[in-house]
Every structure is written in C-alpha cells, then in structure tokens.
C-alpha cells in the first residue's frame, strides 16, 4: 500500500517533537547487520541489512583493456536492481531510474574516495588491467536502499580476493581464487542519506518516511587522517534545501560517519574472523 495521508501527517507531527513513527530520534540509524557467504563463486559477497531493508552484493573480477585516458588503472562497473521480491512496488523489467541513481551514487562514492588503489589493478600498462564488477540486489525494501547498497558494496569489496590469473594465457581462471585481497586504502567511503519532511531533517528514512519526504540528499564521505572528505553528493526531489539545512546535514554526516565506521570495521572483521 502507498503511504496514507494520515501517516504522513503523523510523521510530521511527531517530528515537531523530535520523534519518529518507529520510535527513533531524527538522526538515529536503524540496526545494521553485515554478513558474507552469499556466493562462493564470487570474488567477494555481502548481505547487508539496515533495519528490514536487505541487499545482497557480489563483486566479480575480470581482466580487460584499460581506458585510453587511464592506461595504468583498473576499472569498475556498479549495477543495482530492486528485485521484484523486494516489495509490492517493484515490478520486473530493466532497472528503473531509482536503481540507476543508486548505482551511480554508490559508484561515485567509491571511485572518488580513493578507496580502491586503481594503479595496483594494472597488470600491463595500456594492455591489461583488472576490472571490478559490483552487482547490488535489493531483496527486501523498507527504505534507504541507497545506504544499504553502498555499505553492501564496501563490505563485498573488503571481503573480496583476486581470482587466479594465468599470465601465459592472459586469462582469468574463473572459480579459482587466491588469498590476495583487493588493493584497498583506509579511505573507507560511506553514504548517508537524509530526507527533508516538512521543515525537519532525518537520517536513514524507512519506507513511509521516504514516501513522505519532499527532498533527499545523499552524501558519500570518507576519512583521511581524521579529516572527513565529501566524495559524492546527490540531491533528490523538487523541494530545495536551505544553506543552514545543508550545514546541519554536513554536521550530522560527520557524527554518523564516526559512529558507524567503527561498528562496520568490527562487523566486517567478525565476518572474516
């Protein structure tokens, strides 16, 4: 069912008191869980839940020619789909605008943060480089698939290892893996999504809140020597944000990043044991 008007009104009334329909505070995230082991045939996988929103992510690796303007750097392609299993509103068919936008924002966050050391993905300059293929599937949608997707992608990258590469044949031996992890840096990018409902801001919206929101902003942020870097931003919806609201969002982004960074590191370590 789509959002009833009375629920939107309730969401607004509660926010005036600094409360949310599910009992959270405006800048409180839902519980996050990170698991792996979705597919042994992938170089890396993750299964991430934020509240009831769940995504499965797989990283596959292949070897290809580099782009002419980056001859000594690896490449990356990110795809995202809402599976029709995810909820009533998601029907089959090719990825729609929602999916494309999520894939692009996740991609930019990872790319611009410097989380992947692209030069270390070069096999032979100008001829052969590693290509990282990230596939994200939302299988249960209760809002904020954006942040779940980004987190899932990061987790799958952290858990991935190279496949075996046959240097003589210059081919990947699919299904055979090395122990070598991907060349990742400390600059872990996270995305944080805020919604504006009425004149109130919230983080990590659930489905009803997402449907109530008039404007949305996603910020991909990473950390370099305790300093936060914004790597990607995407505003959604028609309603504008004020400059003051953006300042508040940046402030809350910094806080949320620190809060979940440690938790994520711990959870990923726990998964890898």
């Amino acid at each position: 069912m789509k959002l009833p008007n009375i629920n939107k009104k309730r969401i607004l009334t509660l926010l005036r008191d600094g409360k949310r329909l599910d009992g959270r505070k405006p800048f409180e995230l839902r519980d996050i869980s990170i698991e792996t082991g979705v597919s042994i045939n992938a170089e890396g996988t993750s299964r991430v839940k934020i509240g009831k929103t769940e995504v499965v992510v797989g990283v596959k690796m292949d070897v290809q020619e580099p782009y002419p303007d980056h001859e000594n750097e690896g490449t990356m392609i990110t795809s995202m789909e809402f599976s029709p299993a995810a909820g009533e509103r998601w029907e089959g068919g090719p990825p729609g605008m929602d999916s494309i936008e999520i894939a692009r924002v996740v991609d930019r966050g990872i790319r611009e943060s410097g989380f992947i050391d692209w030069k270390k993905l070069c096999i032979k300059e100008g001829e052969k480089v590693w290509s990282v293929l990230i596939d994200i599937y939302c299988i249960n949608d209760d809002g904020n698939a954006m942040d779940a997707s980004a987190l899932g992608a990061i987790a799958a990258l952290k858990l991935a290892r190279f496949p075996v590469y046959d240097e003589k044949e210059e081919k990947v031996k699919f299904g055979e893996f090395t122990d070598k992890p991907l060349p990742l840096t400390e600059k872990l990018p996270l995305t944080l999504t805020f919604h504006k409902i009425g004149d109130k801001l919230i983080i990590d919206p659930n489905r009803d809140e997402e449907d109530s929101g008039e404007a949305r902003i996603t910020i991909a942020v990473s950390s370099v020597k305790k300093e936060k870097m914004i790597n990607a931003m995407q505003k959604g919806g028609i309603t504008p944000f004020t400059i003051e609201e953006m300042e508040k969002i940046i402030e809350e982004t910094e806080k949320a990043y620190d809060k979940i960074f440690a938790e994520i590191e711990k959870k990923i370590k726990h998964v890898t044991k």
């Binding site: 996988t45 596959k60 293929l133 699919f174 299904g175």
Partner: peptide
C-alpha cells in the same frame, strides 16, 4: 533470475 555473481564467470544481469 540467476544473479550475476552466483556463477564463476559473471552472468550478464
């Protein structure tokens, strides 16, 4: 729907 990463050689989505 067979997910691209369910198999050793990535299946086209």
């Amino acid at each position: 729907n067979m997910l691209p990463f369910s198999v050793t050689e990535r299946a086209r989505p």
